[in-house]
Computed example of a mutant assay.
Amino acid sequence: MKTEIELKELVVGLSGLMSVSGRETFEQKKLLSLVGGFFDEQYADDVGNQVFVRYSGRAGAPKILIDTHFDEVGMYVAEIKEGGFLSFVNIGGLDTRILGAAEVIIYGDRQIYGVIASTPPHLQKPKDAEKPGEIYEFLIDTGYTKEELESFVRVGTPVGFLPKYTDLVGGSIAGKSFDDKACAACAVYAIAGVPKDELCGDVYLLLSAFEETRRVGGAAAGTYRVEPDYAMVVDVCHARVPDTSRGETTAFGGGPAITHSPATDRRLTKMTAELAGEKGIKYQFTVSSPGTGTNSPAVGLARAGVPVVDVGLPMKNMHTYNEIICIEDCIETSKLISAFVSSGRIAGEFRHEKI
């Protein structure tokens, strides 16, 4: 089993994989090469969920689920047009205001580069300049002819933003698909770093499918199969920037955000916060009503119910090709996950006797 890993390298490595909703296993071989060696077992299901397991070796050990969805927002090709242009539909929530001139990769029989066409201000009609375009109005310029494209691109071919990452001053990093693969990296880093004899249960890392397109998503099926005793869902949350509501955002660089919500377990939430305090882990609280906007409700309602705590990684520019996260927040999030799967107090409180 691998034992050494760099968190930032893992964040970029996982986020750079193409996993537009419905295509979560597209680069499964690369995923396995990055993280498979840190786990005892791995499997994928028919939904597209990918599960990685570390066993504690303890008889009757509880099952601890860590969920981080693996799908990303993106596009599918809708039509191949004359002049080497592609029309597309959005997969997940995309803000059309940021699409013009975006760089993309078309994942056909061979991968090619493209740029979403942008109308210069000089050519825009006044009424068009005042409103964002509709998704069906956008085209991807590839430089190929229609006939050339038809030989390796088809309707339904996935399209993702160009995986390009930039370090910013102050320990931040910008790039595509940190939602939610940065959290997946935090979880891998955390689980891999805990010695086997310190694990307080068998740990199941669920890289769940199509969270971006369906609120129930693949997490419901994945959780049902694992049948965990308790769970933590880790997803990104909105970081505070000027002119945003304080009540709906979290402090960038303030550590992971533990969520108060009707969809989460109050005892597990309280004990997770107490654990962070005991371990000196930086954290903050956020509140979400009525749900969480994450997989927590789906996980919590699987089978007869699963106690779940929801943890958020602060992010700026969500659902763009330049999402921004703070590496220090990633480190603190990893520390919290490590403490969570090593907590004898939590395991003792939430372990269920198997019938």
Rank of each mutant, 00 (worst) to 15 (best):
Y55P: 00
T68S: 13
T68R: 01
L31F: 09
F38Q: 10
I64G: 01
T25V: 07
N49F: 01
K63L: 09
R23I: 00
D46G: 12
F39G: 07
H69I: 08
E27A: 10
A44P: 01
Q42W: 12
L34M: 11
Q42M: 12
V35C: 05
I66C: 04
Q42V: 15
G60F: 02
H69F: 11
L31T: 11
F52T: 02
S21Q: 05
L31E: 11
V53D: 07
L65V: 12
V47E: 03
G36H: 14
T25Y: 00
G48L: 08
E24W: 00
P62I: 09
F70I: 05
R23W: 09
Q42I: 09
G22V: 04
Q50C: 03
V47G: 01
F39A: 14
F26K: 06
V35H: 03
Y43R: 10
E41L: 05
Q42N: 14
P62T: 08
P62C: 09
T68Q: 02
R58D: 04
S33A: 15
N49R: 02
N49I: 00
R54T: 07
K30H: 07
R23P: 00
A61P: 06
V35K: 01
D67L: 00
S33R: 15
K30Y: 08
E27W: 07
L32Y: 13
N49Y: 04
L34N: 11
R23C: 03
I64M: 13
A59E: 15
Q28A: 12
E41I: 07
A44D: 06
H69L: 08
R54F: 03
N49G: 00
L31V: 06
R54A: 13
V47F: 05
F39M: 12
L65P: 08
T25D: 07
F52H: 03
L65G: 06
F70Q: 01
K29L: 09
R54W: 06
F26R: 06
G48W: 03
V47N: 02
Q50T: 09
R54N: 05
H69T: 10
R23F: 13
I64P: 06
K30W: 03
D40L: 10
L65S: 04
F70E: 07
G60C: 05
D46W: 09
V51I: 11
V53C: 04
Y55A: 00
G57M: 07
V35P: 08
L65R: 06
Q50M: 12
S33K: 15
G37S: 15
T25R: 12
Y43L: 05
K30N: 06
V35T: 09
Y43C: 02
Q42D: 05
Q28L: 15
K30D: 14
L34Q: 07
V51L: 02
N49E: 00
Y43I: 00
D40M: 12
Q42S: 13
D45I: 01
L32A: 12
F38N: 12
D40R: 08
E27F: 13
R54Q: 08
R54P: 01
H69W: 10
Y55K: 15
D40H: 14
D40F: 04
G57E: 11
K63W: 09
K30I: 02
K63C: 10
V47Y: 07
L34V: 05
D45M: 02
D45N: 00
F26T: 02
K30L: 11
G36N: 08
V35F: 04
G48V: 02
E41A: 13
V51H: 04
N49V: 03
K63E: 08
L31M: 13
F39L: 13
